[in-house]
């Protein structure tokens, strides 16, 4: 149920974002979503792509340091309180969130949040028992395709 996320180390300088995006473009890899954590000195670019294995290969070939981490994609109802409801469940079970970011796509009623948990399996268990829908890697592609259709 976990999905693969690629992280890249970037120096906090002009032009540093362009290069990895170009690498992916040249390889014909589609970026599904991304988030950027910035600090004074460096940034971390986190990517969810349609073919993470191929992306890893092209990044490594290009000489970048790339790390694959497992994150959890959670479906959120697109209404006030949708996200709060999920966070409440996590809060009650004392599940620690390292970071999260949103995944946007064409549907009106549903959104997807990407979570990086300290304990992903524990989080999935808790969310499952509460009936929250976890999105798998293939679902993601499907969503993506659906959007494109």
């Amino acid at each position: 149920m976990k999905i693969k996320q690629l992280s890249l180390f970037l120096e906090n300088q002009a032009g540093k974002l362009y290069y990895p995006c170009k690498v992916l473009a040249d390889a014909g890899i589609d970026i599904l979503t991304l988030s950027l954590a910035d600090t004074q000195q460096f940034g971390i670019l986190r990517l969810i792509v349609d073919d993470w294995e191929k992306a890893r290969t092209v990044f490594e070939k290009a000489g970048s340091v790339v790390k694959v981490t497992e994150v959890v994609a959670v479906e959120v109802e697109n209404r006030p309180g949708g996200l709060a409801g999920i966070l409440e469940i996590l809060e009650e079970s004392r599940i620690n969130i390292e970071y999260m970011y949103a995944f946007t796509f064409g549907r009106q009623d549903r959104a997807i949040m990407i979570f990086r948990f300290e304990d992903s399996d524990g989080a999935i268990r808790v969310l499952n028992t509460k009936g929250v829908r976890i999105v798998s890697q293939t679902d993601l592609k499907h969503h993506q395709n659906g959007r494109e259709c």
Binding site: S7, F9, A37, T39, V65, V66, T69, R116
Partner: peptide
């Protein structure tokens, strides 16, 4: 230079 072994996805 950051090496793969020591790279982390968290700040």
């Amino acid at each position: 230079e950051v090496t793969p072994e020591f790279f982390s996805d968290t700040v």
